[in-house]
């Protein structure tokens, strides 16, 4: 009974290996199964599989990762809330004097999963953070007229690509940038200029261009709309930019809808030393183990993917949280936010149930936004309760054993959830 509702693991297995375990068999199996669709490897930006983190010093501390995560969450909240007050673009045009709120889009720094794609002809490989919480795909571009941050791969130079073209200011795709970035596009020598600001003062500004995108050797797309960044600053951790997978027409998912019919899936690797995948298109053998729930829209944030949480189970206990707590705040699923945020009522119920189940382990000090941390250093194995989410239309999804704890070290292992400030947030 106990085993049924708890995970028992070796404390050592909680700690990420220092070497990259090349794609695990299941991923390989998955990769081959997806012959008909295109599959990219997903790696953790700060792990030993990433070519970006050769400079150990570059890896942020856990406190920094968690702090960046909070900044991202604040910016998502402000995007969702600001949508309530946002005037239509026409209003803004009419009241030219109105200060257009700098769209605090999503914060990239904390997003820590990257994929490698090819751009241009001949194609240049670039590591981009993939982000279901934002729409515009961009990368840094030579000649970096204003500024480029340090990135691992050579910075893309459109002047050496036979297939690069600028988007003109008068084209309809140029005006689409307003909804994708929250900022009205600029114009420079008749070339459309994009401007995307992120919540942590990161930003990318540059030419809006069209280029050949190679997702894999065989999946190549001409005329892919992306941002060629001439002024880029921020916490992008050595990656070359961002792959936007949100719901706006400018998102990669929408631009490649013809081929992939707005269908994509991913698996995020369990440790920073293992490999996952991001695949586009419905694969013929798509595992029928997949259980579905409703994809809903977030009224104030139409770029986000909404899901309806109705309850949470800890061990064999259904938490005493009324479904209205979840429905009044709504929930989005975001590959770029690290720690799940819950309405405070829900978080305090989860925290109480988890602490009750873990009362035989010593609590230790909190780290950043995580307030339920344990010292496992004197244990060889530990047991902790399973956690599952109940979504609408009756789907109950168990989290993986690795999806419950955030491991700073063996003596600081934390419950990987945090509460929002206010249920109505």
């Amino acid at each position: 009974e106990e085993r049924e509702h708890a995970h028992t693991v070796e404390v050592n297995s909680l700690l990420p290996a220092t070497t990259c375990s090349s794609s695990s068999s299941s991923t390989k199996g998955h990769m081959s199964e997806h012959a008909s669709s295109s599959v990219l490897k997903v790696i953790h930006k700060h792990g030993p599989c990433s070519r970006l983190n050769k400079h150990k010093s570059k890896t942020p501390t856990h406190a920094q990762i968690l702090q960046q995560d909070q900044t991202r969450v604040n910016s998502i909240h402000s995007r969702v809330n600001s949508k309530k007050q946002t005037k239509s673009v026409d209003d803004l045009r009419q009241s030219a004097a109105t200060t257009i709120p700098a769209q605090s889009g999503s914060v990239v720094g904390s997003g820590n999963y990257i994929v490698n794609v090819g751009l241009g002809s001949p194609k240049k490989q670039l590591s981009l953070i993939f982000d279901t919480g934002s729409d515009l795909t961009w990368t840094q571009c030579r000649p970096c007229i204003i500024s480029c941050y340090k990135q691992k791969e050579p910075i893309f130079d459109p002047s050496f690509s036979a297939s690069y073209t600028n988007v003109s200011c008068t084209s309809a795709t140029c005006s689409q940038l307003t909804s994708a970035t929250g900022n009205t596009p600029g114009c420079d020598t008749s070339t459309c200029i994009y401007d995307i600001q992120y919540g942590d003062q990161s930003f990318s500004i540059g030419y809006f261009g069209k280029e050949k995108l190679s997702l894999t050797n065989t999946d190549v797309f001409d005329g892919f709309l992306f941002g060629c960044g001439q002024n880029n600053q921020g916490l992008f951790g050595g990656s070359a930019g961002l792959l936007g997978l949100g719901r706006n027409p400018i998102s990669l998912v929408e631009q490649l809808a013809q081929k992939y019919n707005r269908f994509f899936s991913y698996c995020l690797p369990s440790t920073s030393s293992s490999i996952g995948y991001l695949s586009f298109g419905k694969s013929d053998g798509s595992s029928n183990a997949v259980k579905f729930t409703t994809l809903s829209t977030v009224s104030q944030g139409d770029s986000f993917y909404g899901i309806n949480v109705v309850g949470i189970n800890v061990g064999e206990t259904k938490l005493p949280i009324s479904a209205s707590v979840f429905s009044s705040s709504g929930t989005i699923i975001d590959s770029g936010t690290v720690i799940t945020r819950l309405p405070p009522t829900a978080y305090s119920a989860l925290k109480a149930a988890f602490r009750q189940a873990m009362k035989s382990y010593p609590l230790t000090e909190a780290v950043s936004i995580l307030d339920t941390c344990y010292d496992f250093s004197s244990f060889k194995t530990v047991s902790y309760p399973k956690i599952s989410f109940v979504f609408d239309n009756g789907l109950t999804q168990d989290l993986d054993a690795t999806g419950i704890l955030y491991v700073v070290s063996a003596d600081q292992v934390c419950l990987a959830f945090a509460g929002n400030e206010d249920d109505s947030y």
Binding site: S24, S26, H30, D69, V73, I76, H77, V80, L245, V253, N261, R262, F263, F264, S265, Y266, C267, L268, P269, S270, I275, G276, Y277, K282, S286, S287, A289, V290, K291, F292, T293, T294, L295, V298, I307, V309, G330, T331, I332, I333, D334, S335, G336, T337, V338, I339, T340, R341, L342, F389, Q397, L399, D400, T402, G403, I404, A416, F417, N420, Y425
Partner: peptide, 30 residues
């Protein structure tokens, strides 16, 4: 708003079937 973050998504196959209006999950996919 609540956010289902990437720690909780670990090792799950997360499927976005936008045309079908659904999000899916499958366990132990990588």
């Amino acid at each position: 708003i609540g956010i289902f973050g990437n720690v909780q998504q670990k090792r799950l196959q997360v499927v976005y079937d936008i045309a079908g209006g659904q999000i899916g999950f499958a366990p132990a996919a990588c």
